[in-house]
Design a protein around this nucleic acid. Structure first.
Lengths: 137, 137
DNA sequence: ATTTTTTATTTGACACTCAAGTTTCATGGG
DNA sequence: CCCATGAAACTTGAGTGTCAAATAAAAAAT
């Protein structure tokens, strides 16, 4: 029974994060998959189409047109691969990196807000719990 | 600095939940918004189009065609409203309720898995933290 | 009784998703 | 070296979600 309540709290947390992300992204004139691509590129640096598709859990077919649109908005750049002429490296442009940093900052601010009513001890416990749970996937 | 790590753990948690949800739903031949509608109807019982749209954070225009498709798959049923002839009540069918219960069960199982390496004390702390954070939105 | 608001639907433009097919290139076996 | 196989990216078509704007019907307000 206790587990059910915990499950409920997790689901609610997930729903609220999803909704927040949706709203924040739309204000920037981007879609969820688009900002997701910028996040991955921002965190892991430049990578090939195939790699990015794997990180995003989608196909290169889907990604091609998504990158077309991000390129048109000048958030991202296609560069030739050094050694493999089949591959293409996707890089953030300066405006793309700035968009990533802004979004990252919003995430940080949200975390601060969410955590503001927790004690230091609770924060540490939460951190431990999340790390353990993230490994369990 | 500590807050940044906590933020990172939250984002990672969110990403993994999103990815899990995506995969699970696709196996059932449904889309994310479709299962979301079934979840809301399963938890809060029947409701009008407008109410459901509000719960889902979308417009009734979007919802109309989504409900069309769920109705075609016999997960959901349109019923006339008792007193307001403008309104339409959306109900889960038996197969729709079963789909909801199955999905709910999977969520529960995921929670069990995630939580399996936490002590009882940690689980209680996590529960407290999530409740506090959910209120802070 | 007339006007305004609410509710649902329809439609058009755009985006994401996948699968299937195409092109270009890399790699390994003959 | 040549060819077969596989890999990487692109293209296309069908289906779905998203929003805004327009429409129709009914309730609420004046």
């Amino acid at each position: 029974m206790e587990l059910e309540e915990l499950n409920h709290a997790i689901v609610e947390f997930y729903e609220k994060l999803s909704s927040w992300e949706h709203d924040v992204v739309r204000e920037k004139g981007l879609t969820l998959p688009q900002i997701h691509a910028l996040e991955i590129l921002g965190i892991h640096e430049s990578m090939r189409m195939k790699e990015l598709a794997n990180w995003m859990g989608t196909t290169t077919g889907t990604l091609t047109v998504l990158i077309d649109r991000l390129e048109k908005k000048d958030y991202v750049r296609r560069c030739p691969h050094k050694t493999d002429r089949r591959s293409i490296i996707i890089e953030l442009t300066d405006t793309g990196r700035q968009m990533f940093l802004e979004h990252d900052k919003l995430h940080m601010q949200l975390t601060e807000t969410m955590v503001s009513d927790l004690t230091q001890e609770e924060r540490e416990c939460l951190h431990r719990c999340l790390n353990t749970m993230n490994k369990a996937f």
